[in-house]
C-alpha cells in the first residue's frame, strides 16, 4: 500500500511546486509585477546609488577650483594597500618669499583600492570623499591611476591640518 501512497504523495508534492512556479509565471506573463531584474543600461538616467555607496575616492572642489587637501599624507599612511600617493612640491609664498611644502599631486590607484574607507576617515580636513560612480572599466589599466586634485587647483586658504 505504501507503493501507491508513494506515488500519490510524490505527485502531490510535485504539483505543489508547480503551483508556486506557475503562479509566478502567470503573474509575470500578464503583468510583469514579480520581475525583480532591472534593465540596467536603460535605467542609467534614473539609477541613483545610495549616499553612502563607496564607488571611488574623489576630491571635492569648489567653483574656484579649490580643494581642502593640504597634503598631510594621513590617507597615504592609513591606506592598507598603498593605493594613495602624495607628491609634494616647493611653493614660494609671493608675499614673504619663503619656500613652503605644498601638495603637487594626490595620486589614487583605483586598481589597488579595496574601498575600505580608512583614508576618508583619516583625512583631517575632509578633503576626500566617496564618489558614487561605479563604471570603472577601462581598456588600459594605466587609466586606473588617477590624479585627484584637478590641474591648477589650490588649497582653500585657511585650511589647517
Amino acid at each position: 500500500m505504501s507503493y501507491l501512497s508513494d506515488i500519490t504523495g510524490g505527485i502531490k508534492s510535485l504539483l505543489g511546486g508547480m503551483t508556486v512556479t506557475g503562479k509566478y509565471f502567470f503573474i509575470n506573463f500578464f503583468t510583469r509585477k514579480e520581475v525583480i531584474t532591472e534593465e540596467y543600461p536603460d535605467n542609467m538616467d534614473t539609477l541613483k546609488m545610495y549616499d553612502r555607496f563607496r564607488g571611488e575616492v574623489v576630491m571635492w572642489h569648489n567653483e574656484n577650483n579649490e580643494h581642502k587637501c593640504t597634503g598631510c599624507s594621513s590617507c597615504e599612511r592609513a591606506c592598507p594597500n598603498g593605493a594613495i600617493e602624495i607628491i609634494w612640491k616647493k611653493e614660494v609664498n609671493p608675499e614673504t618669499g619663503k619656500a613652503k611644502r605644498a601638495i603637487d599631486k594626490h595620486i589614487y590607484h583605483l586598481g589597488m583600492c579595496t574601498m575600505c574607507g580608512l583614508c576618508i576617515e583619516a583625512c583631517p580636513t575632509d578633503a576626500i570623499e566617496w564618489g558614487q560612480d561605479f563604471h570603472h572599466t577601462t581598456y588600459d589599466r594605466t587609466q586606473l591611476t588617477k590624479v585627484l586634485n584637478k590641474p591648477g587647483s589650490k588649497v582653500i586658504s585657511g585650511t589647517k591640518e
Binding site: T21, I36, M49, Y50, R52, F53, R54, T114, M115, C116, G117, W130
Partner: peptide, 29 residues
C-alpha cells in the same frame, strides 16, 4: 534553476539595506 532566483530575490533586499547603511553590498567593512 528557478529557486536560484527566488533565493536571490530575498538576498537583493538585504543587499540594498546593507548598501544604504554600510556603503557596500558584499564587502561591507
Amino acid at each position: 534553476i528557478t529557486p536560484f532566483m527566488y533565493g536571490f530575490r530575498e538576498r537583493e533586499l538585504i543587499n540594498d539595506i546593507m548598501e544604504e547603511t554600510c556603503g557596500a553590498r558584499l564587502t561591507m567593512n
